[in-house]
């Protein structure tokens, strides 16, 4: 069970190897298989997460949530998606057509690209990049540009306001996020995600770096534009922010990207702070990739729990909290981590 996916990948590789084709072709096939697998994983998870979100919301608000379409309402999201696909995509007359249509196409790309380096289990990263963390932070922040494209191209004041908020918020919270992750990188001395997980064999970094985890988590919520930092959407203030003019599948893609981002931030949290695929309490009966998923889902549930508990913050509160609290706190965390590493080093740990 532990190596089921690694074995499947290995047997596919062998199967193509038998055909005696050039190695470049083999690599291309392997990459296609991996991308398809990741895409399938993302889409199925997004479908499930929309359902889970609505169920969690329902239960927190003392109701049942969707329970009519299919057994226990499980087909609700599928029904919604098929409705969205069948809807017309309306392009506002004043919109920049090319950019307007490009934004929903591109929005899903950065999260998908980042999933390349995520270690789903032991030896289960699609690409074991030695600068994985850096790659994650660099590519994930590309979404900002695409949100801005969507907001600008819609030619709508709410979209523009939402776009501006996205840029302001994402740039402000990128900084504490990076600085928080830096604490972990300082301890491990590597940017490779798999190596970071392996370094947590004795102690998960959530215990070594609790402040960094907290900062990372808060910044992660803000990066995903989720409550209580959902100023970009802010339906009671600016309709739906950058998504205001989007209908049908364009809107669905933004939605999909949001849930993919949530998954991504949860995967990163599980990798950097919760020991990735490592089993707690020596419970190795459950395979590593399952542990990873369990941890990710705990994180995702936390996201949802926060969403249905807290009200939205104001713009000035958001900015003030980001720059005046989180950034100094993460800098202090780096300083203390650095001092502690040096001191422990001198003490001969």
């Amino acid at each position: 069970m532990e190596n089921i996916f690694v074995n499947i990948s290995g047997s596919i590789r062998e199967l193509i190897g038998v055909l005696g084709l050039p190695p470049l072709f083999n690599e291309a096939v392997m990459i296609t298989v991996k991308v398809t697998g990741i895409l399938l994983f993302i889409v199925l998870n997004a479908l499930w997460l929309v359902y889970m979100e609505r169920k969690v919301a329902g239960y927190i608000q003392c109701r049942y949530g969707p329970n009519r379409v299919g057994p226990k309402g499980l087909l609700q999201t599928a029904a919604d998606i098929s409705k969205l696909i069948s809807k017309e995509i309306i392009i506002p007359s004043g919109a920049d057509k090319i950019l307007f249509l490009l934004a929903p196409v591109l929005i899903f790309t950065p999260p998908l690209m980042v999933f390349m380096v995520v270690p789903f289990g032991q030896n289960m990263a699609a690409v074991d990049l030695n600068i994985g963390v850096f790659y994650f932070l660099a590519v994930a922040s590309l979404s900002t540009v695409i949100f801005w494209i969507a907001g600008w191209a819609s030619n709508n004041k709410y979209s523009l306001l939402g776009g501006m908020r996205v840029v302001a918020q994402m740039i402000s919270y990128e900084l504490p996020m990076v600085l928080a992750v830096l604490g972990v990188v300082m301890i491990t001395g590597t940017l490779n995600m798999s190596d970071i997980v392996r370094a947590q064999e004795n102690l998960w970094f959530i215990f070594a770096q609790p402040v960094a985890f907290l900062i990372y988590f808060i910044a992660g919520v803000a990066e995903c534009n989720r409550v209580p930092f959902d100023l970009t959407e802010g339906e009671s203030e600016i309709v739906a922010g950058p998504f205001t003019e989007y209908s049908g599948m364009g809107f669905a893609l933004f939605f999909l990207a949001e849930y993919t981002n949530v998954m991504l931030v949860s995967f990163m949290a599980a990798t950097l702070f919760l020991g990735g695929w490592l089993a707690p309490f020596g419970l190795t009966i459950i395979p590593g990739w399952a542990w990873m998923l369990i941890k990710v889902y705990i994180m995702i549930f936390l996201f949802m729990w926060l969403r249905w508990t807290y009200p939205r913050v104001r713009v000035d509160q958001l900015m003030g909290f980001g720059w005046k609290v989180l950034v100094p706190l993460s800098l202090a965390n780096i300083f203390i981590t650095g001092v502690a590493i040096k001191v422990l080093d001198k003490m001969g740990w």
Binding site: Y59, I60, R63, Y64
Partner: peptide, 8 residues
Amino acid sequence: EMLTPKVT
């Protein structure tokens, strides 16, 4: 609230 029985 999430764990209380639902009245719907």
